[in-house]
């Protein structure tokens, strides 16, 4: 399978009154055709910013993509004009956001919000777009789609709105669908339904998916490969089986040690490991995880490790081989 999206050295900062926030620090990764890539990490580690940068949707100011490349169809998206970039957004790469309650426009009907992208990118007229919108709604299991399409978002439940968002994201047959914690705001049963739906759609359509979450349970059931992010860096990347079977980075080990049990309260965000994530303004030199790491050695405070291969398709950024249990 070929690579469809290649991110190289992507670096995004926010220029705030308190200083420069290093939200994404030169991350590199690839997405293969039809692959589902999971991105996991604690709140604030730069998951959203990294994918919003790919779409060039960072609010600017205060944000700015200060370096790197995003290669898609042989072109660097970061070098495209705004007009060329608009041809990509919602068309070849589309995005589903976290909060379905606020991500749909309250004063426009579902029909209007679904058809506008298709009219723009697929050149459909209004009737054709509407017909396809109804089909899409049926595909994501909205009952009575024909009638409900003229409703407003507030007449839909949270789960249904997220289905609408997914239908909208798929409406122009994208090659890549980016989903930024699309189920976090939903309760567990609805979450499971959405995940089933996405697995099903992926089978049918075969687009690549980037799925962001801080719930490792979701990644296990959905992703082919996983990136673990910490403080704006990718600190481990591996096929999903290896992340669970052979995790290497101390942070990943910590995350896995704290997968919530099924009976545990699911809604609250994970704070799996003692201590807080580092300040992204003026980070100290060395490994950003060092203050919380029980494996840390002197070198960790002086130098930040880079991703190194440890097995086939498995990369880790750590000075210590945790498998040998140096501590």
């Amino acid at each position: 399978m070929g690579t469809i999206l290649e991110v190289k050295g992507l670096k995004t900062q926010f220029f705030t009154q308190d200083g420069i926030v290093n939200a994404v620090n030169g991350i590199s990764y690839t997405v293969d055709e039809g692959e589902t890539l999971g991105i996991v990490g604690e709140s604030g580690c730069g998951k959203s910013v990294s994918v919003l940068s790919v779409m060039r949707l960072i609010p600017q100011p205060p944000g700015k993509i200060v370096g790197g490349q995003v290669i898609f169809e042989g072109r660097d998206l970061l070098k495209l004009s705004e007009d060329e970039m608009r041809q990509v957004r919602g068309n070849k790469i589309s995005m589903v956001f976290q909060d379905p309650m606020t991500s749909l426009n309250p004063v426009l009907t579902i029909a209007r919000q679904m058809t506008e992208g298709m009219e723009l990118h697929l050149g459909l007229d209004h009737q054709q777009a509407r017909k396809r919108a109804i089909e899409l709604l049926e595909m994501v299991n909205i009952p009575q789609a024909k009638d409900r399409i003229d409703d407003y978002p507030h007449q839909f439940s949270g789960g249904m709105r997220q289905r609408v968002m997914i239908a909208m994201g798929l409406s122009c047959n994208p090659q890549v669908l980016i989903a930024d914690e699309p189920t976090t705001a939903l309760d567990v049963t609805i979450q499971a339904q959405i995940l089933d739906l996405v697995r099903d759609l992926k089978q049918k359509i075969g687009m690549a998916i980037i799925w962001i979450t801080h719930d490792l349970g979701i990644v296990a059931g959905l992703a082919d490969r996983v990136l673990v992010m910490y403080a704006g860096y990718i600190i481990e990347s591996a096929p999903v089986k290896e992340i669970y079977g052979d995790p290497r980075h101390p942070y990943t080990l910590g995350l896995l040690g704290s997968i919530p049990r099924l009976d545990a309260e699911r809604k609250k965000k994970l704070t799996p490991i003692e201590g807080l994530p580092p300040d992204l303004i003026d980070p100290p030199p060395g490994c950003p995880f060092a203050p919380r790491c029980r494996f840390a050695i002197d070198q960790c405070l002086a130098e930040n490790p880079t991703l190194q291969p440890v097995a086939l398709n498995h990369h880790v950024a750590c000075w210590v081989d945790t498998k040998r249990g140096v501590a």
């Binding site: 779409m55 957004r89 919602g90 956001f97 991500s103 749909l104 992208g117 968002m165």
Partner: peptide, 15 residues
């Protein structure tokens, strides 16, 4: 213009 639905609209590639 800071609302989420405006970001959604941008993500669709609208002008």
């Amino acid at each position: 213009i800071r609302e989420d639905y405006i970001r959604t609209a941008r993500a669709k590639g609208l002008t």
